[in-house]
Computed example of a mutant assay.
Amino acid sequence: MNTRTPLAPLAVATALALTFPAIAAGDAQSFVDKAAVGGLFEVNSSKIAIDKAKDRNVKDFAQKMIDDHGAANAKLQTIAGEQKLKVPAELDATHKSDLEKLQNSTADIDQPYVQMQRSAHADAVNLFRSYAKDGDNAGLKAFAAETLPTLEMHQDMIEKIAASGAGKPAAADASTPAVKSASTPKPAAPVPGANSFTEDQAKSRIQDAGYTDVSALTKDDQGIWRGQAKKDGKSTQVALDYQGNVFAGAD
């Protein structure tokens, strides 16, 4: 396990870390599917970050993901095999797309990699917490419970890296800071930037702004979630940028 110093004070020597896609799994096979795909994505995306990231903390975090996931993925494979469950060997379309964006980027990848990790770890904690509590398979339920504290530790690590400035989206201009506060004026249009909102989080944020029937959400190449919704009985296009600003009729 990698113990290079800026991350060493946060490391737990025996920990196995996983970060996974999307929220809670309803049954054993669904949990295995999400866990395995997440594990593959972590290893593959972190290999790219090792080669292309510039920030030392980001590189060290990526190396830790690679080191930990070899053992963690093997453990999941063993448990799933014992339960006669299939383990996906390839990424799903969403994660393949994210991986290609990192691989093909000619710009600094520290920002998108960190934001992907923040979003993935938020989902991972929800996934494992849910299955550890209500899972339908004793072996996988124990695995989820044992792994959850490590996931929470890794989530703390990536949040500290983000807070230190690594991977923080740049402001659109001097009057629009990267981190939106209550005193930040709303920009006139969606602000491009690495968007860490998941689709469910984006939908919830738009609904909180007073919209209903939110649908067809997709994230464009500027990190802006776009879709359809209704407000006051009228259909409209909506957009959500990485700062959480919601816009109607945004093209």
Rank of each mutant, 00 (worst) to 15 (best):
D200L: 10
N44V: 01
A74N: 13
E42H: 03
D173C: 06
A89P: 00
K75C: 00
T106Q: 14
N2S: 14
S215C: 01
D108F: 07
G81I: 10
Q207D: 06
Q29D: 08
M65I: 06
D134Q: 14
E100G: 12
S45Y: 04
P6T: 01
T19V: 05
R56M: 05
V12S: 12
A174E: 12
A202Q: 05
A174C: 00
D221Y: 07
A93V: 07
E100N: 14
I66V: 15
N104T: 14
S97V: 08
V32M: 11
H121V: 02
H69Y: 03
E90W: 02
I66Y: 06
T14F: 11
I23K: 13
A89V: 11
D123A: 15
F247M: 07
Q63H: 04
L18N: 11
D51G: 01
S97A: 13
L76Q: 05
E100F: 03
L18S: 11
S196L: 04
A80L: 05
A163Y: 04
Q243G: 12
M1E: 11
A35M: 13
P169E: 08
K64A: 15
A172K: 12
D136Y: 04
A250L: 06
R4S: 13
A142R: 14
Q155G: 13
D92L: 02
A174Y: 01
D123F: 01
K75M: 14
F31S: 06
N57W: 09
T176G: 03
K234P: 00
K133P: 00
K52V: 02
E42W: 01
A28D: 10
S183R: 10
L7P: 03
L16Q: 14
D33E: 14
Y131E: 11
D134A: 15
T14L: 07
P88Y: 05
M153D: 10
D110C: 08
Q237K: 14
G193F: 05
P192N: 09
S181G: 14
Q83E: 15
S130E: 12
L140G: 06
A166K: 00
G139P: 00
I66N: 08
A53W: 06
R129G: 15
N73H: 13
A13T: 12
S181T: 15
E146C: 01
S46E: 03
G233V: 03
G135S: 11
R205H: 07
A15T: 01
G210C: 09
A163V: 09
D55V: 13
T212P: 01
K86V: 14
D232V: 02
A145N: 06
A239R: 04
T5N: 09
L10I: 07
K101R: 13
D108K: 12
G26T: 15
G165R: 07
Q201V: 10
I158R: 04
V179K: 11
M116H: 09
D241S: 01
I109Q: 02
G249V: 04
T218W: 00
